Amino acid sequence: MKIAELLAGKKNGEQVVIDGLSIPVAALKALEKEGYQHAKVFKDNRTFACWGDACSACFTEESLRERTRSK
């Protein structure tokens, strides 16, 4: 799925729920700003894989929350 589509109509402070994972909109916006364009949820281990043209990473639900707290 595209991160831009997940963010459509959402504001900071809101959450996006994808297959049971609750991701802060602010975290998704930060990922998009860093160049990530796509995302996939792996429900079995509750991780969130993201990638773009020049980047890729895998995050847990908690690690995405931490990214928003540290800023």
Results as ranks from 00 to 15, higher is better:
58 C>N: 10
14 E>I: 02
15 Q>A: 04
70 S>V: 13
11 K>E: 13
61 E>G: 06
17 V>K: 10
64 L>H: 02
2 K>F: 14
13 G>L: 09
9 G>F: 05
63 S>W: 11
3 I>N: 02
3 I>Q: 03
51 W>C: 03
32 E>A: 14
11 K>C: 07
12 N>Q: 11
71 K>H: 12
11 K>L: 12
63 S>N: 13
7 L>E: 04
31 L>A: 06
19 D>E: 12
11 K>N: 11
27 A>E: 01
5 E>K: 11
60 T>D: 07
31 L>P: 01
49 A>F: 10
44 D>S: 14
1 M>P: 07
61 E>K: 08
56 S>N: 12
46 R>H: 12
39 A>S: 11
33 K>V: 09
31 L>C: 11
11 K>F: 03
18 I>H: 03
30 A>R: 08
5 E>W: 06
70 S>G: 08
65 R>K: 15
3 I>H: 02
22 S>I: 08
58 C>A: 10
9 G>D: 05
29 K>L: 14
1 M>S: 13
66 E>C: 10
54 A>R: 12
49 A>E: 12
10 K>E: 03
14 E>G: 06
17 V>P: 00
12 N>E: 14
38 H>I: 01
28 L>I: 02
28 L>E: 01
46 R>I: 07
57 A>K: 10
36 Y>I: 00
26 A>D: 04
53 D>A: 13
39 A>Y: 07
51 W>R: 05
3 I>V: 08
15 Q>G: 00
28 L>F: 03
6 L>N: 02
64 L>I: 05
1 M>H: 08
57 A>C: 10
32 E>D: 11
23 I>W: 00
51 W>A: 05
51 W>I: 03
18 I>E: 09
70 S>N: 11
7 L>I: 04
13 G>P: 03
19 D>P: 00
68 T>Y: 08
11 K>W: 00
46 R>T: 06
41 V>Q: 02
3 I>T: 05
71 K>Q: 15
18 I>N: 02
18 I>Q: 08
51 W>H: 06
22 S>E: 12
38 H>R: 12
70 S>P: 00
13 G>F: 05
22 S>V: 12
29 K>F: 01
1 M>F: 07
71 K>L: 15
21 L>F: 04
69 R>W: 12
5 E>H: 12
22 S>H: 05
33 K>G: 10
18 I>W: 03
18 I>V: 13
6 L>K: 11
25 V>T: 04
34 E>N: 11
33 K>E: 15
27 A>F: 00
